[in-house]
Lab assay of single mutants.
Amino acid sequence: HHHHHGSGALAALHAEGPLAGLPVTRSDARVLIFNEWEERKKSDPWLRLDMSDKAIFRRYPHLR
């Protein structure tokens, strides 16, 4: 159930192989992290948004 927010940013994801479903670039990863943060913020208003490279690598090590 993907609803768009204002920016309408869509992340490019790997379609197949071992990385299927994972973001292709760091900016794609940022979109995913932001979208998930927006969702989680509803139940956790104090949740901090962390889109640093460090956060991205921790989450998606293949982007190193």
Rank of each mutant, 00 (worst) to 15 (best):
Y60H: 01
R30Q: 05
V31C: 07
T25H: 05
W46Q: 09
E16R: 07
P61N: 02
A20S: 09
A12R: 11
V31M: 14
H4E: 10
N35Y: 07
A11R: 02
H4Y: 12
L22F: 07
R26V: 12
F57N: 11
A9F: 14
R48Q: 13
W46R: 12
H14F: 10
M51F: 07
K42C: 05
K41R: 13
D50I: 05
R58M: 10
D50C: 06
H4C: 11
R64Q: 09
F57A: 09
H14G: 03
P45A: 08
G6I: 15
K41D: 06
N35T: 09
V31H: 14
L47V: 14
W37E: 01
K54C: 09
L49F: 06
R26W: 12
E38D: 10
L19N: 10
R58L: 12
P23G: 00
G6K: 09
R64I: 15
K41F: 09
L22Y: 06
V24G: 02
P45L: 06
E36L: 08
K42M: 08
S27F: 09
L13H: 03
A12M: 15
V24Y: 04
H2M: 13
L19H: 06
A29R: 00
H4W: 15
I33H: 01
H2D: 12
R26M: 15
E39Q: 15
G6C: 12
V24T: 02
H4N: 10
H3W: 11
I56C: 03
S52T: 07
I33A: 03
H14A: 02
A9E: 12
R26E: 10
I56Q: 00
L32D: 01
S27L: 12
H1A: 15
P45M: 09
S43G: 08
L13S: 05
K42V: 11
A29D: 00
I33M: 12
I56K: 00
L32T: 05
A20I: 12
F57K: 04
W37P: 01
P45K: 05
I56D: 00
G8K: 06
H2C: 08
A29Y: 00
F34D: 01
K41C: 07
E39D: 11
E16F: 14
G6E: 12
A12C: 09
L10F: 12
A15V: 13
I33Q: 02
D53A: 06
A29L: 00
R59E: 07
A12W: 12
A15D: 13
R26G: 04
H2Y: 12
R48W: 09
L22P: 01
H5Q: 14
E39N: 08
R64W: 12
G8T: 13
L13G: 02
L47W: 12
H3S: 12
A20V: 12
H14Y: 08
A29N: 00
G6P: 15
A11E: 08
A55F: 10
F57S: 06
F57I: 12
S27K: 15
F34G: 02
A12T: 12
L49N: 02
K42I: 08
R64A: 14
Y60F: 11
L19P: 02
G21N: 06
P61V: 03
R30G: 02
K54G: 08
F34P: 00
P45N: 07
R48C: 07
A11I: 11
H4K: 10
A12D: 09
R59P: 01
L49W: 03
M51L: 13
H14K: 03
A55G: 06
L10W: 06
L22V: 03
D28G: 02
L63I: 04
A55D: 04
A11N: 04
A15L: 13
H3M: 07
E39G: 07
Y60S: 00
H5W: 15
A55I: 08
L49E: 01
S27Y: 15
I33L: 13
H3D: 15
D28S: 06
S52M: 01
Y60C: 00
S43V: 14
H4M: 14
R59G: 02
L32V: 08
K41I: 15
W37Y: 12
L32Y: 05
R59D: 04
D50S: 04
K42Q: 12
H62Y: 10
A20Y: 11
P23N: 01
P45Y: 03
F57C: 06
A9T: 15
E39T: 09
E16Q: 15
R40L: 12
S7T: 15
G17N: 05
G17C: 04
P61E: 05
L19C: 07
G8L: 13
W46D: 14
H4Q: 09
S27R: 14
S7M: 14
Y60N: 00
L63C: 02
S43W: 11
R58Y: 09
L22E: 03
L47E: 09
L10N: 13
W37A: 02
R40H: 15
A9W: 11
A9K: 15
R26I: 15
L13T: 10
V31P: 00
A15M: 15
H3Y: 08
R58G: 10
L47K: 07
E38W: 15
K41L: 10
M51A: 06
K41E: 04
K42G: 07
E38A: 13
T25G: 15
R59I: 10
S52F: 01
D53T: 08
S27N: 14
A15Q: 14
A55K: 06
R30C: 09
H2W: 10
A55Y: 08
R40N: 13
L47R: 09
